[in-house]
Write a protein that binds this DNA or RNA. Structure first.
Lengths: 251, 251
DNA sequence: CGCGGAGTTGAGATTGTTCAAGGATTGTGG
DNA sequence: CCACAATCCTTGAACAATCTCAACTCCGCG
């Protein structure tokens, strides 16, 4: 008999559950339904497309992806990183945004489809209204992050923008319990970070070096830590999303 | 007896109507309701806030505004220009985006409040379902433009980004009939354009000069024209939004 | 007629890019 | 266990893009 895989033993579905519960109120049944998504697990290799446009929502369980666009010739722009616990795919009330970007895996990624949670029964009642509300709220937080990103690209120096992005990633990883002792996993390369920040990989490297010099960044193989987060946030004008946050009740 | 003002004589409400009809199907009653918004006209001076966060939707009738954020110290980032015919304010299904930006007038602006069109009667039926659908679709097109903007800031040179933005503005002005003989009004300064494109005003000027040299741009006091639009669009990878467009039927 | 705002231009400083090469790390097959 | 390839990180040097500062022009307006 084969051993149960790591990802099944540890409750990886706790990640999206934690994120959803930060955004709305889930009934006991809804919580159970989220935990029950185990069966329909999907895997993607590095570089593969995560979900097609218009596809049902998926939760990321493991690995990093991105929302991006290819800009000929040979350039690409990353709009957002997709982290474990995040939801992607077609959420309620999306329309015209489809087709202006694609989702790609930056590392091997494990997901589960969550479309089943959004089913509407014949009498018009949503199966999981709290999940639906949380997904809509999640989509809105993802969108509002895009405004921060525009500021990083348009009004920040390389130093500010890099620090601002690392602060955001630190917060998001911590929100789903993926930051221990102040460290969070950073499984992608400097070139990818550059495609997010609109910088060359070389300059990203020099910027990270300066952050380390200034005592704002610790790095090891595959992880980062921001030892003086408060001070750095103050310095580059970072405002945690939680500080703007409104919890959305189900309809 | 006082003369009827210019803006009342000419049917300025045709502008938002034209835009809404490009996005959804409006019944004759709905069209009449849009034209009937005349009474509740609102004016703003240059620099004033257009609408507060969470305010009812407004249509812009005259003048330009922007969606922006102040970035201390003294910098600002514009996320989008707001043109005549556009809708701003709280549209259906908005939540978390509020508070991450403000709307400001870049010239004197005339608007009308349109909240009355979104009223829901006691039996749960929307008064103007087509308008509601069109506003939701409009909000989505506005959002999808933000992805283009990220590309301009992150992956384009000054030349490409400037050309790309001018192409977008030309298209949007033409869509509501505000481009005659290929010319469209451009009532704001190079400094503001720079705050959109993440460039200094001086560099915007040099970039515009280069576009003129290359025969891609004609400019006079308060207007621009793009005489070789097709070619320029091809050169900088501009894709008109209409080409991606799906017309949304009322629910 | 004079003032203020916006456009224009030049020169030099800064920031970020490109190219190139060497070092470290990891996974793979012999 | 070693050799090798592939990938990423690191560093230097030259180059290009863009910014800042400063001066000057042009224009509309009171």
């Amino acid at each position: 008999m084969q051993a149960v895989s790591t990802i099944e033993r540890r409750g990886y579905l706790e990640l999206p559950l934690r994120r959803l519960q930060a955004l709305s109120v889930l009934s006991a049944e809804e919580q159970a339904a989220v935990r029950g998504l185990q069966s329909i697990r999907v895997k993607r290799l590095k570089g593969e497309t995560l979900v097609q446009a218009g596809s049902e929502p998926h939760f990321i369980l493991e690995g990093w992806g991105c929302q991006m666009r290819e800009v000929p010739p040979g350039r690409r722009q990353i709009f957002a990183f997709v982290l474990p616990g995040d939801a992607i795919g077609h959420l309620p009330h999306d329309t015209a945004e489809e087709g202006r970007f694609v989702y790609k895996a930056l590392t091997p990624v494990t997901m589960v489809g969550a479309g089943v949670l959004l089913e509407i029964s014949r009498d018009g009642a949503a199966r999981a209204p709290g999940v639906r509300a949380a997904l809509a709220a999640f989509r809105d937080t993802a969108r509002s992050r895009l405004f921060d990103h525009v500021v990083r690209l348009g009004a920040h120096t390389a130093y500010e923008g890099t620090a601002h992005l690392l602060l955001e990633l630190n917060d998001r990883m911590a929100q789903v319990g993926l930051a221990q002792e102040g460290r969070f996993a950073f499984p992608i390369g400097q070139e990818r970070l550059g495609e997010m920040l609109g910088l060359s990989g070389v300059h990203v490297h020099r910027t990270l070096a300066k952050l380390k010099q200034d005592g704002h960044l610790l790095a090891g193989p595959g992880w980062f830590a921001l030892p003086r987060r408060r001070e750095l946030a103050q310095a580059v004008g970072y405002v945690a999303q939680a500080e703007l946050h409104v919890r959305v009740p189900p309809e």
